[in-house]
């Protein structure tokens, strides 16, 4: 499910089936790391779209959340809100190190996408998606 009107309507009725929220979380610092951040954000987008396709009926992919200076207070209150809404599992999909209470963190690899041919890019992303899928399944099986 995505964060749009249609899916949210379904979500309201099917919250027992859609029990997992995924928050793509990235840094948008305008420092020397900006190019790296932008590449991470692009990758996060691609991975979450693929992930949504595979597990549409059990995941809500929230809009991407960005932060500066590794401040995670907004993320923490978002996690709290999602928990109150009824999500059993909350997953933060990120390249950052930040640990969040009450949520699983799946850390992505940093891949320099801009230097790759399109085919290679797709392959790398697909591999990453597979790893993330396995982590999500292992969270479900807990």
């Amino acid at each position: 499910m995505l964060y749009n009107q249609n899916d949210l309507k379904i979500l309201k009725d099917e919250i027992e089936f859609v029990d997992t929220a995924v928050i793509p979380f990235a840094s948008s610092d305008m420092t020397v790391h900006a190019p790296l951040n932008s590449s991470n954000i692009e990758m996060l987008h691609l991975v979450s779209i693929q992930l949504e396709k595979q597990f549409k009926g059990r995941l809500l992919i929230t809009p991407m959340m960005t932060t500066v200076d590794e401040n995670i207070s907004v993320l923490a209150s978002y996690v709290k809100q999602l928990r109150t809404y009824g999500f059993k599992n909350i997953v933060v999909l990120t390249h950052l190190k930040a640990e969040i209470d009450d949520a699983h963190r799946i850390k992505l690899n940093e891949i320099p996408l801009e230097n790759m041919s399109n085919e290679m890019k797709i392959e790398m992303i697909n591999d990453e998606v597979k790893t993330v899928m396995k982590s999500v399944i292992s969270i479900w099986n807990k």
Binding site: F17, V18, Q54, F55, K56, G57, R58, I137
Partner: peptide, 22 residues
């Protein structure tokens, strides 16, 4: 709910399509 099903990935049901979500 629109997940992607796969063929024979559930070990208990080798001759069926399986949806990993539910």
């Amino acid at each position: 709910l629109g997940c992607t099903v796969s063929w024979a990935t559930d070990d208990a049901n080798p001759e069926r399509f399986y949806c990993p979500c539910h």
